[in-house]
Simulated scan of single mutants.
Amino acid sequence: MAQVLKEDIRQRIYAAAVEEFYSKDYRNATIRAIAKRAEVPLGLVYTYYKNKQALLSAIVEPIFAMIKETMEKAENSNFHSAFENFEKIEFGMFLDLFEKRKELIILIDKSSGTEYGNAKETIINLTETHIKKSHQNKDIPVFNDFLVHIWANSLIEGMFEIIRHCTDRKSAEKMMELVARQYYYGIEGLND
């Protein structure tokens, strides 16, 4: 019974931290406010999490790791088209991210001043590498690095905008598909 209570307390602290970081960002959130939201004594938060940074890491690291792992998997796949690659690998990741939208928003928008402060740029860089690799053996003109950066930035920012603003999964799913279709077929169309 005590173990269940401990896990319940950990989950309450975690949930309170998500809400606090989401509403205030990392810099403005405090352990005191998190404890108050979780309805636990301040010292109890430190029993479960060493400090505010450790709490942030517990929230965003699984999200960041999933993105990096999915991008690596996508980069090493051999589907017929970039859009098919997106449909089979990356689309599922974005839908999973939608389910953890507050955690993702904390990672990309609200973790300035931490080791995750450049997470969005890292994700864009991974996407750039993926774009270059997925088109290197195709009969598409060589793109300059700046253009590839613009494409990667616009795709990732578009997906993040959907996650930021869509509140129901069905709408988000349709929007993601439309943005990806426009994006991938647009790049493929450059060969015409």
Results as ranks from 00 to 15, higher is better:
Phe91Lys: 15
Ile108Tyr: 12
Asp25His: 09
Arg37Tyr: 13
Thr114Met: 01
Glu87Ala: 14
Glu121Arg: 14
Gly113Trp: 03
Met93His: 08
Tyr49Lys: 04
Ala35Phe: 07
Leu56Pro: 00
Leu104Arg: 05
Glu69Val: 06
Ser23Leu: 10
Leu56Cys: 03
Thr30Cys: 11
Ile59Val: 01
Ser57Cys: 07
Phe21Asn: 04
Tyr116Ile: 04
Phe86Gly: 04
Ala33Asp: 14
Ala54Ile: 01
Ser57Ile: 12
Glu103Cys: 05
Glu61His: 08
Glu69His: 09
Arg32Ser: 15
Leu97Gly: 00
Phe91Cys: 09
Glu90Asp: 15
Phe64Trp: 10
Asn78Lys: 13
Leu104Met: 10
Glu121Gly: 11
Leu44Ile: 08
Leu42Asn: 13
Gly117Leu: 03
Arg37Pro: 00
Lys120Val: 00
Lys52Met: 06
Phe21Val: 00
Leu55Thr: 05
Met66Glu: 15
Lys88Asp: 09
Ser23Thr: 08
Met71Pro: 01
Leu97Pro: 00
Tyr49Asn: 02
Thr30Tyr: 12
Ile89Arg: 02
Gln53His: 05
Ala82Ser: 12
Leu42His: 14
Leu56Met: 06
Tyr116Cys: 11
Asp96Thr: 04
Tyr46His: 11
Ala38Asn: 08
Phe83Glu: 13
Lys88Arg: 15
Glu75Thr: 15
Glu103Ile: 04
Glu84Ala: 13
Lys52Gly: 02
Glu99Ile: 05
Val45Met: 03
Val60Asn: 03
Glu87Pro: 02
Glu20Gln: 13
Ala54Leu: 05
Asn78Leu: 06
Ile34Val: 15
Ser23Lys: 13
Ala35Pro: 11
Ile89Thr: 10
Ala119Asn: 09
Ile106Leu: 09
Leu44Tyr: 07
Tyr22Met: 09
Leu56Asp: 01
Ile63Met: 00
Thr122Asn: 04
Gln53Glu: 12
Leu56Tyr: 00
Glu87Phe: 13
Glu115His: 07
Tyr49Val: 05
Pro41Lys: 08
Ile89Phe: 13
Ala119Gly: 08
Ile67Arg: 04
Ile59Met: 08
Gly43His: 08
Asp96Lys: 11
Glu84Ser: 13
Ile31Pro: 00
Asn76Leu: 12
Asn118Gln: 13
Leu104Asn: 00
Ala82Thr: 13
Asp109Asn: 14
Glu75Gly: 14
Asn76Arg: 13
Ala29Asp: 01
Arg101Met: 04
Ile105Phe: 02
Phe64Leu: 10
His80Pro: 07
Glu84Ile: 09
Ser111Lys: 07
Pro62Ala: 15
Ile108Arg: 08
Lys36Gln: 15
Leu107Phe: 06
Arg37Met: 09
Ala58Trp: 07
Gly92Pro: 01
Lys120Ala: 08
Tyr22Pro: 03
Ile34Thr: 06
Phe21Pro: 01
Ile105Gln: 02
Ile105Thr: 00
Ile34Pro: 03
Asn118Trp: 03
Asn85His: 09
Asp96Gln: 07
Glu75Asn: 15
Val40Trp: 05
Lys88Thr: 12
Val40Pro: 02
Gly117Ser: 05
His80Ile: 10
Gly43Pro: 04
Asn78Cys: 05
Asp25Pro: 03
Ser81Tyr: 14
Ala38Asp: 14
Ala35Trp: 10
Lys88Ser: 14
Asn76Phe: 11
